[in-house]
């Protein structure tokens, strides 16, 4: 019998091949001019939104905190990374890393003092931090102030964004499905019990917040280097709400849910681009309707997998078996 380790490796290589194929086909289509630039733009947006949604889900879904200031961390990453390429002329990788790390540091700074707060108070505090970050950017002329920062080199492309999206999902997936992830989830389930069972709840709350902010910063860096101009208003709380809708719709605590929701909502917003107000009315109604009729979102805390279908049939067998014994 193959060991668990070998079986896992086999499956992982399979997934990697599928991903490489998806990337290769689309890359070929973009380079060959087959893919309409409009579709390319949307694929890029989908990637960035997946990074944002999955990283916010770690904080809101898995850890059970409630952050509505995610765009603020994205802003830190965007401006941080842009300054590295514009002013220091360093390579793109370093720019992305610095942007993400700056966002992570802000995450720690925000997290340490505020994570003691209860759900809704924390929500307001994160919203406040997002606004403070935006307010500071508006007031610093060196980084463009209220007019924004332009002339950022267009270094991000499909390849970068695709593989960094994969990396983000992988890191967060692996984190969540480990003892550290279980510690993180236990805080959502019952903080007092988690603490009594030896979980350093403060550490894991700050950790979730930091990892979440890190990837929001990464998304910001990618955004800045794809759209070559950024403005403080790009990262206002409407952006935070956008990300929040994805997480809530997909299911708080489901990574695949966030991915599905990010894809769906990016496509919906693209098709409603000409009707900005209508798009937000639809978003608003979506939020209300989900909360009233399906508060767990599309996926709840479950993950989408092909096994879901297999497992169901197995369960049925098991139950029939059970009744047979019972008789």
């Amino acid at each position: 019998m193959m060991s668990m380790f070998e079986r896992k490796i086999g499956r992982q290589i399979g997934i990697l091949l599928v991903l490489a194929a998806v990337w290769g086909v689309i890359d070929f289509m973009i380079k060959g001019g087959i893919l309409n630039p409009y579709y390319e733009l949307n694929l890029i947006l989908i990637g960035i939104n997946i990074i944002l949604a999955v990283s916010l889900n770690l904080i809101n879904g898995f850890n059970g905190q409630f952050s509505i200031g995610h765009a603020g961390f994205m802003a830190v990453g965007a401006y941080g990374a842009a300054m590295i390429t514009i002013k220091a002329h360093l390579p793109f990788v370093i720019a992305l890393l610095v942007g993400a790390l700056l966002a992570a540091i802000c995450g720690i700074l925000v997290g340490l003092p505020t994570l003691r707060l209860r759900g809704d108070y924390l929500a307001i505090a994160t919203l406040g931090f997002g606004e403070i970050i935006r307010g500071l950017i508006v007031n610093i002329d060196y980084i463009g102030g209220a007019y924004g920062l332009s002339g950022i080199p267009k270094l991000a492309n499909w390849t970068w964004i695709f593989w960094l999206t994969v990396l983000t999902v992988l890191v967060i997936w692996n984190f969540v499905n480990s003892t550290h992830g279980r510690a993180t989830i236990s805080i959502r389930e019952n903080e007092i019990a988690a603490e009594a069972m030896g979980i350093n709840t403060t550490k894991y709350k700050v950790m979730a917040f930091t990892i979440g902010s890190l990837f929001a910063g990464l998304a910001g860096g990618l955004h800045a280097h794809y759209f070559y101009t950024i403005q403080p208003n790009t990262f206002n709380f409407l952006k935070s709400f956008d990300i929040l809708v994805m997480v809530v719709l997909g299911g708080q605590g489901s990574i695949t849910g966030s991915i599905i929701a990010a894809i769906a909502l990016t496509i919906i917003s693209a098709s409603l681009q000409k009707f900005a107000a209508l798009r937000l009315v639809i978003y608003a109604l979506l939020l209300i309707i989900i909360m009233l009729f399906r508060p767990q979102g599309l996926m709840g805390t479950k993950e989408f997998s092909l096994k879901m279908f297999r497992k169901k049939s197995k369960d049925k067998e098991g139950k029939q078996h059970g009744t047979a014994i019972g008789q």
Binding site: T179, R182, I185, N190, A193, A196, M197, G198, I199
Partner: peptide, 18 residues
């Protein structure tokens, strides 16, 4: 005070964390 929405075994695995 159990971790209500988690499985029985995950309740124990969390306690093994340290």
């Amino acid at each position: 005070r159990l971790f209500n929405d988690l499985t029985v075994i995950d309740n124990l695995k969390i306690a093994y964390h340290s």
